[in-house]
């Protein structure tokens, strides 16, 4: 769906994006992570035809972005990190403007607008002025605008930045719905937990260079050297740590907040041996789960912090 080849953008002596190569298949949700100023927005802007690259190219659905920008624009939906709104129009008028701008036939516009309003849960605000919407609602309206022409590839630049927790959760739910609709999404963020339960792929960029990219699981395993198991216990955590440390299949053990974290390096799918080892000694175990993907750890591990 998206293929980026040796994409480079320089501003004078500053190289914002350096020889970036990336690939996304249809239906992929890729987290595009990097510290502020790493080149995420520049890369996305180049894919959206807003910026001309210094060299290299990108293909969306097989179409060369820079040779045929006109053909690429209908295929992508872009939501910038900072965007303005035409505030003196009503919500439906705002969407009608973009529907017309994307050449949706007049007789289909009303239906399409109703659909995206329903999807973004804004139907009740149909006749309100855009200026009357809260920031979270404006963010959803922008997403509705992004979806109006049914794009194949969604490029979302920090979609939840500046939102309160409730609005953040709403946007997250919305994105999950889009995922279930089979959209291909590239979502950039510097806030890692935001992407954790959402993406199947990640790409980490720093100082314009791609540091690592691939499946979330494999990258995590690569960096950690195994799967992290989380054991929630009532007490005797330190004792449990000693026992687990002696196991061959566990490489690293630590505990905090009543939970023991053990890095399992044995055969995949056989980590029940860890539980067996603990249950023998009568530990009072509350839960035994695979620890959630902690992108923060990966991020800190692979980036050097050069930008920040």
């Amino acid at each position: 769906m998206l293929r980026i080849e040796n994409l480079t953008k320089t501003y004078g002596k500053l190289t914002a994006v350096d020889n970036l190569c990336l690939e996304m298949g249809a239906g992929d949700i890729m987290g595009f992570i990097g510290p502020n100023g790493a080149g995420k927005t520049t890369t996305i802007k180049m894919i959206t035809t807003l910026l001309k690259p210094t060299s290299g190219t990108a293909y969306v659905n097989g179409v060369d972005v820079f040779a045929n920008p006109e053909e690429v624009r209908p295929l992508i939906g872009y939501m910038p990190d900072f965007f303005g709104m035409y505030e003196d129009v009503m919500v439906w008028e705002y969407l009608d403007f973009f529907a017309a701008a994307y050449k949706i036939p007049v007789n289909k516009r009303k239906g399409t607008i109703d659909d995206v309003l329903e999807l973004t849960d804004l139907t009740i605000k149909r006749d309100s002025f855009v200026s009357e919407l809260s920031r979270g609602m404006q963010q959803r309206l922008c997403l509705a605008k992004t979806l109006i022409h049914d794009p194949k590839l969604l490029l979302l630049d920090e979609p939840a930045s500046g939102l309160d927790p409730r609005a953040r959760i709403e946007i997250k739910e919305l994105l999950k719905e889009l995922r279930s609709m089979g959209k291909t999404i590239l979502i950039s963020s510097h806030i890692l937990p935001e992407l954790a339960d959402f993406c199947n792929k990640i790409a980490i960029i720093e100082r314009g260079k791609l540091v690592v990219s691939g499946d979330v699981e494999s990258i995590m395993d690569q960096c950690r050297g195994g799967t992290v198991l989380k054991v929630e216990m009532v007490d005797r955590q330190d004792e449990a740590c000693r026992i687990l440390d002696n196991l061959d299949v566990v490489s690293e053990v630590k505990w905090n907040n009543g939970c023991v974290f053990a890095t399992y390096t044995g055969t995949p799918g056989e980590h029940y041996v860890v539980l067996q080892a603990l249950s023998k000694d009568g530990f009072r175990i509350l839960s035994f789960t695979q620890a959630e993907v902690d992108l923060e750890d990966i991020f800190l591990k692979v980036t050097t912090g050069a930008v920040s």
Partner: peptide, 13 residues
Amino acid sequence: EKKTMELLVLTTI
């Protein structure tokens, strides 16, 4: 200035 240009030029007009 109002940051609406990007959204406008990305359409197919």
